[in-house]
Amino acid sequence: MTDMSATPDDESLFGAPVLYSRGQKVVHPSREQYVAVLKQAIDAGYTMCSDLTAVDYLTHPGRELPSGIAAERFEVVLNLVSITERTRLRVRVQVPEADATIASCFDLWPGTEAMEREVFDMFGVRFDGHPDLTRILMPEDWEGHPLRKDYAIGRIPVQFKGANS
């Protein structure tokens, strides 16, 4: 188990750089480290993944990231909870636009299945190893991913299934 009581100045956790956002601990693994970091987090007591979401940084590229982490368009954000330690840990992973895929954490927490589907539905980020990557909130024949920043509000006329056939 990684030492959880390391000093706050200690810049890395599970081999990935750490930054504090308004006092909240955020770990920034690379896409390659992602699954390994999550596995170590589970071993360290973060047995619950309470939230998985994404952000599209298309129009706000400049943001504070640890050195060595290059900003990409998409960011997948996980909120982990340690029930025994009563602490939270946030994980932010950069996902490039050209290859918007990332490993699925379905094998670690089956509960992320629906959340990853929501991220896929809303942002078009694909999850490798996800058992059932289909749309979850939008109709299955919908075009586009609504929460992307280049998907304007009201830009596309309302689509109804079978309306054009």
Binding site: F120, G124, T134, I136
Partner: peptide, 14 residues
């Protein structure tokens, strides 16, 4: 590519 990624939206029925 990103454009294909946007277009390729129908992943089959739920």
């Amino acid at each position: 590519t990103a454009v294909e990624n946007v277009r390729q939206t129908s992943e089959g029925a739920q």
